[in-house]
Design a protein around this nucleic acid. Structure first.
Ligand SMILES: [Mn+2]
Ligand SMILES: [Mn+2]
Ligand SMILES: [Mn+2]
Ligand SMILES: [Mn+2]
Lengths: 218, 218
DNA sequence: AATAAGGTTTAGCTTTGCCTAAAATAAAAG
DNA sequence: CTTTTATTTTAGGCAAAGCTAAACCTTATT
């Protein structure tokens, strides 16, 4: 397995995020990477040379199977490091993403394997996102948006979308964490906000909050 | 505190290793970095622009106080990560250096502080090298070469030089680890090799081995 | 079918970081 | 005090990665 630059890996990751295996437009990629379209054109050409993507000019870029494999291995590292930072070093789940952006580029299979072991072979990261297995298999993407349940259901929070620091602040303020259980007390017919109840009392969650919080029945 | 490239940090670290605060020749630096002299000339010029070094053409390069501070902070990270890899992930002390070469460039004060805590505020790394404090202070450099003791002395291994993988292999083969205690049984007048004794028996260490193993009386 | 608009690529420039070969300088030898 | 030698710097290239401005496709609108 060859060695890639940080920039290359970031492009691969962005492509996986935006399209999985499907084609992605130059513009979307540029937006995601935070570079100009012209820079992206050149970058994906380089990636094409290395058989990580297929490029059709004016049409779009698409990861090859090789590119997908690489993307998953980077995602695996990203999420394992996030798990390390939260579980072992005590970081808050809102702080770890930028750090994992750096750590995900450290190159050593051995290190990844040992980290995985050290963390207790986790299947999901601190945000509830699935950690790709060594062989590329993906654990299930957990839960559905809170608004999708019906009143009276007992739910457990299993995942949150990365919706920016204000969102995480709000979660912290409301003391909402992965693993918390609530009863859905009511769903507003007016604005789709949801009333959650626990032993600590009840409170309302806006539609926007609900859309980024995923739960399972339990 | 500005952000530096990996290459810049490697030059700073090399300069600190070779000269501490004293001037270093272009050639020595080139050798250490593994680049040609012409590349080094340009690199140190860039570092000079950033006030990390003072350059006197044809004479040598020298870290500024700012450069020294940076060097120590990188060394601190390097040695903390080595400690993490050995103590927490179970790597052998001969494996961790190349990994720490990558990890030392991760940028986050917070991460370093938390790692330091997590590791139990260590003063020395797995090879016995001092880990610079947060404020730049250096814990003592421990021990003296084994050959410096006299027959009959009880010693404890506290540090080993990084003398290549064959050296570490030899240490492992002989079961020599930091913290091990021995009695100096004899020192050869012929070739300066040393006979060490413990409850497990006695064995001879070549002069070359001895020169890279440091101990204290105890 | 012709044109306007939007998105994409090309052309040309910049910085970092490395290279080789040639010129310049400092140090050592005579 | 020259001359030779070793070291260092300059000059000229190259690749990765980014940028702006101009040219070029595609697509949608008239
Ligand atoms: Mn993340
Ligand atoms: Mn995550
Ligand atoms: Mn090391
Ligand atoms: Mn070390």
């Amino acid at each position: 397995m060859k060695t890639h630059t940080e920039s290359e890996e970031n492009y691969i990751k962005a492509l996986y995020h935006l399209g999985g295996g499907r084609p992605v437009s130059n513009g979307d990629l540029a937006q995601r990477i935070g570079a100009k379209g012209s820079s992206v054109t050149q970058a994906v050409r380089r990636l094409g040379q290395k058989d990580l993507v297929n490029v059709v000019p004016y049409k779009g870029v698409q990861l090859t199977p090789q590119g997908i494999r690489l993307a998953k291995s980077i995602l695996r590292k990203h999420r394992l490091w996030e798990t390390f930072l939260v579980d072992k070093l005590g970081f808050g789940w809102e702080e770890v993403h930028p750090l994992a952006e750096q750590l995900e580029h450290i190159q050593s299979e051995e290190l990844v394997d040992r980290l995985f072991q050290f963390l207790g072979s986790p299947k999901h990261d601190p945000h509830g996102d699935p950690i790709p297995e060594r062989d590329g298999q993906m654990p299930p993407v957990l839960g559905q948006p809170i608004g999708a349940f019906t009143a009276g259901t007992e739910i457990r929070i299993v995942r949150v979308e990365d919706a920016g620091s204000e969102f995480f602040d709000q979660l912290d303020t409301m003391n909402i964490n992965l693993g918390n259980t609530y009863e859905i007390r009511a769903i507003s017919a007016f604005d789709s906000s949801v009333e959650l109840g626990s032993s600590a009392g009840t409170f309302w969650l806006s539609q926007n909050m609900c859309a980024n919080i995923y739960a399972v029945q339990s």
